[in-house]
């Protein structure tokens, strides 16, 4: 839990964050974004700082399985949530299927946006499994990921190298290769992850 001064005067808190399955205790200034907590305090530099305004997606991580912009989340608000960064996706030496698909498809050039692209794609696949529509999903029928769907769903991740032509096929490969897996918990408010 967060240790917060009861008179709400303190501008720092001692808190515990669950990151990639491990618990960390940190003393943080409230201004610290989740992104800065990960990068500067925990040494997890996979998540990147691009714009720091929620416009580029380079900082994308998973919070209770949902993709979010870590730059706009204050670390103190992430207490009790399960945080997954790009460092936490692989299973030992076995890459996550999305990571493997990015390599197979050469879906990057400079690589700066790649961790955010990959975390976002993991979120996209979970959202699609849960039947979440996008702006281009037809009203009737379920979600079928195709190029238009992936481009729309991944629009929150910018790539200044313009590697989209390979990112889209990589995400589609990962979607096609998916083993049956649970969707994200849509009724998160009724679960234990509050």
């Amino acid at each position: 839990m967060t240790t917060t001064d009861t008179r709400s005067q303190s501008t720092t808190s001692t808190l515990r964050l669950q990151v990639n399955g491990r618990e960390h205790e940190l003393a943080l200034d409230h201004r610290t974004s989740l992104l800065d907590a990960l990068r500067e305090h925990l040494g997890l530099t996979g998540s990147k700082k691009g714009c720091d305004h929620g416009q580029c997606g380079a900082c994308t991580v998973l919070l209770d399985g949902r993709r979010v912009n870590a730059c706009l989340i204050l670390a103190v608000t992430a207490v009790g949530r399960e945080i997954t960064t790009v460092e936490g996706l692989a299973d030992g030496e076995d890459l996550h299927p999305v990571q493997q698909a990015f390599i197979d498809r050469d879906a990057f050039q400079c690589g700066y946006c790649t961790p955010g692209q990959i975390c976002s794609a993991v979120g996209v696949l979970a959202e699609a499994r849960s039947g979440w529509p996008s702006a281009v999903t037809p009203p009737e029928g379920g979600v079928q990921l195709d190029e238009a769907e992936v481009r729309e769903r991944m629009s929150g991740n910018l790539c200044r190298c313009g590697a989209y032509a390979n990112i889209v096929p990589a995400v589609l490969d990962a979607a096609a290769a998916e083993l049956p897996a649970p969707g994200i918990e849509t009724a998160y408010h009724e679960g234990e992850s509050r």
């Binding site: 929620g54 997606g57 994308t60 919070l63 949902r66 993709r67 979010v68 912009n69 706009l72 989340i73 976002s120 979120g123 996209v124 959202e127 529509p133 996008s134 702006a135 009203p139 769903r153 991944m154 629009s155 929150g156 991740n157």
Partner: peptide, 22 residues
């Protein structure tokens, strides 16, 4: 989605997947 399509469409037309999750 069924009863108020304009509402779902308005939400989905805004921001990005990450921001809508937040």
């Amino acid at each position: 989605r069924a009863a108020y399509p304009m509402l779902s469409q308005a939400l989905l037309s805004g921001a990005s997947g990450q921001l809508r999750n937040m």
